[in-house]
Simulated assay, not measured.
Amino acid sequence: MSKRHPVIAVTGSSGAGTSTVKRAFEHIFHRESIKPVIIEGDSYHRYNRVEMKAAMKKAAEAGNNHFSHFGPEANLFDKIEETFRAYGESGTGKKRYYLHSDEEAAEHNSRLGSALKAGEFTPWEDIPEGTDLLFYEGLHGGVRDGEIDAGRFVDLLIGVVPIVNLEWIQKIHRDKAERGYAPEATVETILRRMPDYVRYITPQFSHTDINFQRVPLVDTSNPFIARDIPTPDESLVIIRFKDPAKFNVDFSYLLAMLQGSFMSRRNDLVVPGGKMGFAMEIILGPIIDRMLAERD
């Protein structure tokens, strides 16, 4: 961990809603004129899109029907840890991009003078000098596997953890809307990933500094037939602080600022779902300000 070069990681499963936290951080960075280096978890996959399909097929032929993006075989866990360590020590390191779409490919091809396609990676390049902090958003910000422990080099580790039925509903609807996947195909993906989900995704949330868990207030008992995603106003968000004293959390202030909020345990704050983004900003903004002030 580093005071001079802070590392912040947001970790959550596919469909968990980590993009909501990312937007909250973007607002904080813009408001406070903070210059982050942003690292996307997908850039640490071991295989590009074509290679991953081939690797999955090969694994299935060998009797492994659970090969997934959640596990170590398909990721570079050591490079995640190394990136966090190197940045914390010196504010430098390497990064690359996974190109999710043709639009992203065109943007980076223009920058690099390359001819990369969607589903491929850009080459590794140096993290630019002069950044204020590293911000990671992806699946494995706090991953542990054998001697690898990425979270030990993170100064602020945040989990985004909707209850699992809601997570599945969000994934099914997102995959259909954004990627054109049939719900049946997404369910197959969920089943294939389950062993790695249990071993490598869920354990991270025991080590996070703060968890944001959205809980719907409507029936989600069968997520595979849900016609829509519960709205924020149909939800509550449980915000769990592992060690409130570590970040000087003022619960009285938060309760006053977040109308309708209450404490369910000594370190669990419950807020209306529609106030999740606001809650993130008033909780995380002061923490980041203190981090940057302590660099000097």
Rank of each mutant, 00 (worst) to 15 (best):
S68V: 10
I287P: 00
T220Y: 03
I169L: 07
G91N: 01
P72W: 07
A9C: 09
L166F: 04
D196E: 13
E51N: 07
I38D: 05
N75S: 14
K79L: 15
L191I: 15
S33D: 15
V249Y: 06
R174D: 05
I38G: 03
E137C: 14
E234M: 13
I288V: 15
T11N: 02
K246A: 14
S33L: 15
D149R: 12
D196Q: 08
E178I: 10
Y181M: 13
S252E: 12
K242C: 08
L134Y: 00
T20G: 06
I283W: 02
G71I: 06
T186N: 06
P286M: 11
F67A: 05
S264D: 13
Y44P: 01
K176H: 10
I287E: 00
E125H: 04
D78Q: 14
I38E: 14
V50F: 10
A60S: 10
P244W: 07
N109K: 06
P72L: 13
T11H: 01
K275Q: 14
V143H: 01
I201K: 01
E61I: 07
K22A: 13
A55S: 10
E281V: 11
M194W: 13
A118T: 00
F278K: 10
I163H: 11
S110Y: 05
D219G: 06
L191K: 14
I158N: 03
T20K: 02
R179M: 06
L116M: 12
G138W: 03
G180Y: 10
A182M: 13
A24G: 13
H173W: 08
D126I: 00
P6F: 00
S68I: 07
I283M: 02
A182G: 07
E73T: 11
A177N: 12
I283Q: 02
D102I: 09
S221N: 10
G151V: 00
R199N: 11
M291Y: 13
V50H: 05
G12K: 01
V218M: 13
K117A: 09
A106K: 09
N65A: 10
A150V: 09
G41Y: 07
E188A: 15
F205R: 00
N267V: 04
I80P: 00
E32W: 08
K246Q: 11
G141I: 04
G138Q: 03
H140N: 02
A226M: 15
M276G: 03
P244G: 09
K79S: 07
F212V: 01
R295H: 07
L157I: 08
Q204Y: 08
K275A: 08
D196H: 10
F278H: 14
K35S: 14
V249P: 08
R265Y: 12
E281K: 11
S13P: 00
L292K: 12
F278W: 11
G15N: 04
F135Q: 05
M56A: 12
